[in-house]
Write a protein that binds this DNA or RNA. Structure first.
Lengths: 215, 215
DNA sequence: CCTACCGATCGGTAGG
DNA sequence: CCTACCGATCGGTAGG
């Protein structure tokens, strides 16, 4: 309303002829695009994807609904982009913080802890992912950069049975799914300002997960 | 389509003057009402409450959309009734299957096991509850017969710390929430026809929850 | 339960 | 990004 940059038709043109272009599309690096994603994430997390209207998002941004189509082609673009980016970010984070060697049960504990910390630090986006991703059409869902988190957990259980740090009777698949539930459930109840810090919460959940499978 | 009972205006009248009436409202005990709930549950579980249209439900029932209003006043009635009834049923089930005495950690294990079995046996309805209940308006949500499941879990952890069957360093609140997540997460992945039976799944999850807190 | 209907809103578009 | 617009559909209602 006050000092917004006007670019006129540039964006639209850029989107239409996206093949051999020097000037970038408006999206990446643009401040307004980031705002749009932020508002969309908050609204999707609060009311759900389907109950969210583009009119509501536009209102919050102080623009007209039709103007949103300068940034997106469909409503689903917003959901997809949010889910995609949080997956990429999580992947990076876990890659740099979870070691590749050492006793499997230790690695599992670290993995769970870092997973929970990430979840809490990106609560809005992870909520959108965990609660709304199934609203994506099948073809869009197939294009998500899923990083096989369950497979990773399963492998840790298998490794742990081999290195003797995890109970021999543990079920890798069921175990992985249950650990995942214990960790992911955080998005259903965590709200800033509670008694425990994110680190304390992550620590406690990780400890419980460890104990649940430890030899 | 073939042998459906026609009652004409009776139902509508019955609904409008619900005060001092001998003849019951159409709803309770009516076969068609049960069908409606069933279709609604399946659709809400599959596509989400908000993405579900009354037109779609009516189509599946072979009636016109407007006719649904013979049974309901608003779309939310369907969601509320589904969530309400599954809560009541769960309460009953757990009351009759989980003992009130014995070592706390044992009771906790049984509680989790029965909870998971119930979840799986009523997967559609529990999915609606766990994934869609927050689509209810605040006042409707306040009218739900919530049976304090978390509080019950918390108390078991506290009891267990007293009777020595649960680790002294366990956090009752965090512990209860984490157990709840491990158990509830089942609705996100369980599908009939898998490798493990509901009982095996429930048994394994319950065991893990036990171990996660056991002294 | 059907007929017939409504206001509101939805996602989305053409053109600038 | 705005103007101006559209077809489709939404939940819901009056009356029988």
């Amino acid at each position: 309303m006050t000092g917004k940059t006007r670019v006129g038709e540039v964006g639209r043109t850029a989107r239409k002829s996206r093949s051999g272009r020097t000037e970038a599309t408006r999206k990446p690096g643009d401040e307004r695009w980031a705002e749009l994603l932020q508002v969309a994430a908050k609204t999707f997390a609060d009311k759900g994807y389907s109950a969210t209207t583009l009119q509501g998002i536009a209102d919050e941004l102080g623009m007209l609904k039709g103007s949103l189509y300068y940034y997106i082609r469909t409503k689903e673009d917003l959901l997809f982009e949010l889910v995609r980016s949080v997956l990429v970010l999580a992947e990076e984070r876990l890659a740099e913080r979870v070691p590749d060697d050492g006793p499997a049960v230790d690695r599992l504990e670290v993995l769970v802890r870092e997973h929970v910390i990430f979840l809490i630090e990106h609560l809005t986006e992870t909520t959108v992912y965990l609660h709304e991703a199934d609203q994506l059409t099948a073809d869009r869902r197939a294009k998500l950069p899923v990083h096989g988190f369950i497979a990773r957990l399963e492998k840790l259980v298998v490794d742990g049975k081999e290195d003797g740090t995890i109970r021999p009777d543990a079920d890798p698949h069921l175990g992985a799914l249950t650990i995942l539930g214990a960790a992911n459930w955080v998005y259903r109840w965590y709200r800033p300002g509670g008694n425990s810090s994110p680190e304390e919460i992550a620590e406690e959940i990780a400890r419980m997960c460890r104990k649940s499978l430890e030899a």
